[in-house]
Amino acid sequence: MRVVEIKPKKCKAPGCGKLFKPAMTTQKVCSVACAKAIAKDPKLQKIAAKAITKQKRQDLQERREKLKTKGERLREAQQAFNAYIRERDRLAGYACISSGRPLDWNGNAVDAGHYRSTGAAPHLRFDESNCHAQSKHDNRYLSGNVADYRIGLIKRIGLEAVEALETDQSVRRYTIEDLQAIKALYRQKLKDLRRAAA
Rank of each mutant, 00 (worst) to 15 (best):
residue 42 P to D: 07
residue 91 L to E: 12
residue 27 Q to I: 02
residue 12 K to M: 07
residue 48 A to T: 05
residue 79 Q to Y: 11
residue 184 A to V: 04
residue 192 D to K: 14
residue 72 E to F: 12
residue 100 G to H: 00
residue 22 P to V: 00
residue 65 E to I: 08
residue 23 A to V: 09
residue 19 L to D: 08
residue 65 E to K: 11
residue 80 A to I: 03
residue 123 H to K: 05
residue 143 S to E: 14
residue 95 A to H: 11
residue 87 E to T: 14
residue 21 K to V: 07
residue 93 G to A: 05
residue 90 R to D: 06
residue 73 R to A: 03
residue 28 K to P: 04
residue 169 Q to F: 12
residue 183 K to A: 12
residue 126 F to P: 06
residue 65 E to P: 05
residue 41 D to S: 09
residue 188 Q to G: 06
residue 194 R to V: 02
residue 25 T to G: 09
residue 99 S to G: 07
residue 9 K to P: 01
residue 157 I to K: 13
residue 21 K to F: 02
residue 180 Q to W: 01
residue 99 S to D: 06
residue 13 A to E: 00
residue 95 A to W: 09
residue 61 Q to P: 07
residue 20 F to N: 00
residue 143 S to R: 13
residue 110 V to Y: 14
residue 150 R to Y: 05
residue 49 A to K: 15
residue 134 Q to S: 08
residue 6 I to Q: 01
residue 174 Y to D: 02
residue 105 W to R: 13
residue 31 S to W: 00
residue 71 G to E: 10
residue 3 V to F: 11
residue 58 Q to A: 07
residue 30 C to K: 00
residue 196 A to G: 13
residue 60 L to K: 14
residue 63 R to P: 00
residue 159 L to H: 11
residue 162 V to L: 09
residue 166 E to F: 10
residue 114 H to R: 10
residue 63 R to M: 10
residue 35 A to R: 15
residue 156 R to E: 08
residue 109 A to L: 12
residue 101 R to L: 08
residue 184 A to Q: 14
residue 89 D to F: 05
residue 157 I to P: 10
residue 100 G to C: 02
residue 89 D to S: 04
residue 87 E to M: 15
residue 147 A to I: 12
residue 46 K to E: 12
residue 1 M to L: 05
residue 103 L to I: 03
residue 22 P to N: 02
residue 163 E to A: 09
residue 179 L to A: 00
